[in-house]
Computed example of a mutant assay.
Amino acid sequence: MRSLYQNHHWQNKGSIMRPFIESRKASGSNEVNIEIVQSYVECEYPIDENNAVVVYIIPRTENSVWVASSFEHAFDDLVINLDRDTYEAIADTWPILANLLENGIKERYQYGALIVMEDSDYCEKKWFVASIVGNISFETLEDLFGQRVQQAIELVISQSMTLWIEIAENKPNLFQQFSKGFLKGLTAAVTATVFAFLGLNSEQQD
């Protein structure tokens, strides 16, 4: 991403990677807030006055990126020593989670996958819902945020929100455990706002 940094004024404001749903940094504006740091680009999409969804664009190769949202350590205990019986139990309770896990295991990133990547701020492994976009340019922000990256961002937000809702509805005790560090519960209005932003019907995202 050297060209991107050469052509745009940027600075590391002490940012650290944040979970998918988080309090807004840039209050009072409906614009997407973009921050460029050494290892990634952070995109903050407002969903109401106080909260936002956060997506990261992370360099992968010279012409490809990960587009990802962080779920921190949410699934560490759930999928430890994952075997077929455990996976089938997960699939019965959380089919969306199971599908994203399978996509990650089989490296099928086109439709979103749940994978473990390094949080470059803490240099520790965390869970991300992610997709890959290849054959892109890093010359300018306009090049980086082309149609295919925008589509991947929408995919990651949609899959992340759908996963969030599935866990909240189907296993509220687990949801409460790993929601520490996340927004403590989403109102129906906030959820509807996110899906409206994506042009989706939230009632169909089961």
Rank of each mutant, 00 (worst) to 15 (best):
M1V: 13
M1P: 07
M1I: 11
S3A: 15
L4I: 12
Q6V: 14
N7Y: 01
H9V: 11
W10Q: 06
Q11G: 07
Q11Y: 10
Q11P: 00
K13M: 14
S15V: 07
I16M: 13
P19M: 00
I21R: 05
E22S: 11
K25S: 07
K25M: 11
A26N: 15
A26M: 10
G28W: 11
G28V: 05
N30W: 13
V32H: 03
N33E: 15
I34S: 02
I34V: 13
V37A: 11
V37M: 03
Y40G: 06
Y40I: 07
Y40V: 05
V41C: 06
E42K: 06
C43F: 11
C43M: 15
Y45N: 07
P46G: 06
E49H: 09
N50Q: 11
N51K: 04
N51G: 00
V53Q: 07
V54G: 01
V55C: 10
Y56E: 11
I57R: 07
I57F: 08
I58E: 14
N63T: 09
N63H: 08
S70L: 09
A74H: 03
F75C: 01
D77V: 00
V79G: 01
V79I: 14
N81F: 02
L82P: 02
D85H: 05
Y87F: 15
E88A: 07
A89Q: 13
W94E: 08
W94T: 06
W94C: 04
I96A: 08
L97S: 00
A98K: 05
L100E: 01
N103D: 12
N103C: 04
G104C: 04
I105Y: 10
I105M: 01
K106S: 09
K106N: 09
K106G: 00
K106M: 11
E107N: 05
E107A: 03
R108L: 12
R108H: 12
R108S: 10
R108P: 00
Y109C: 00
Q110V: 05
A113M: 02
V116F: 00
V116N: 01
M117K: 06
M117P: 00
D119N: 13
D119Y: 02
S120A: 10
C123K: 13
C123T: 09
K125I: 04
K125F: 08
K125S: 13
F128V: 07
S131C: 05
S131Q: 05
I136N: 01
S137V: 08
E139M: 08
T140S: 14
L141E: 07
F145N: 05
Q147Y: 12
Q147D: 14
V149T: 07
V149A: 03
V149D: 02
V149M: 02
Q150E: 15
A152W: 04
I153H: 01
L155D: 04
S158G: 12
S158I: 04
M161F: 14
M161S: 12
L163N: 08
W164L: 08
I165Y: 06
E169V: 08
E169A: 09
K171L: 07
K171W: 14
K171T: 10
N173I: 11
N173G: 03
F175A: 03
Q177V: 08
K180E: 12
F182G: 04
L183K: 05
L186N: 02
T187D: 13
A189C: 01
A189Q: 07
V190N: 03
T191S: 09
A192D: 15
V194H: 04
V194M: 14
F195D: 09
F197H: 12
L198P: 12
G199F: 13
S202A: 14
E203W: 15
E203D: 15
Q204D: 15
Q205A: 15
Q205V: 13
